[in-house]
Amino acid sequence: MSQTRNVGDVILNVENVSLAFGGVKAITEVSFDVREHEIRAIIGPNGAGKSSMLNVINGVYHPQQGSITFKGLTRSDVDSHEAAKQGIARTFQNIALFKGMTVLDNIMTGRNLKMRCNFLQQALWIGPARREEMEHRRQVEEVIDFLEIQHIRKTPVGRLPYGLQKRVELARALAAEPEMLLLDEPMAGMNVEEKQDMCRFVLDVNDHFGTTIVLIEHDMGVVMDISDRVVVLEYGRKIADGTPDEVRGNQKVIDAYLGVAH
């Protein structure tokens, strides 16, 4: 049932965005676009502003300058609830799971925007609330099967090893059925095997659901393998943008990476 991936029109356009924290300039006049169904990587040394960029895209940070256009809607200031409603989901560099909840409940929260029953119906656990819960449970189970985490469904996430936590976080994001998925270093800190699994999942998500993916990753091998186009940031500025091959040959990129020990 896998659809052939078809990179389409521009779905996200980041225009001339600048973001500063007090005196610290995290992002300076960065512009780039992301096309529908593509895997777009953002790379750059630590502190280059990559995570900040994702935070701007889904409304966690508010840029001082510039605009974001997602699916034709331009805004200078996104609110994270709006971004979620528009179909943007994400994972975090430092795992941001709900520690006190089970894997299943964590993933179920990913579907909150699709749930319609109010709290009174839920308190009474009457027909609609109950049906809704079952229906979403079924959908969540599909995500669970997809990411192969059936065995840990009922485990509190705090007890899971790091690699699995990252996978659960991806599951929670996927449960929202996003159009665009922002992944902040999904493979950081993983061993080779876990990395391979995660790579496969990212590609599968992109392939099966046609989800557009914006990915921050340090592992150059991975980036070059799976991404369609790459943005390179350094000190908050964009220094290169293009296909993996173009970026690899770019002198500025080579300098930036040689300057930093990895």
Partner: peptide
Amino acid sequence: SQTGRAFMAVRDMDVAASVI
């Protein structure tokens, strides 16, 4: 139900909660 999960989500990690 969803209400309870939303409460716990806000308790455990508010940024992640608002992002979803």
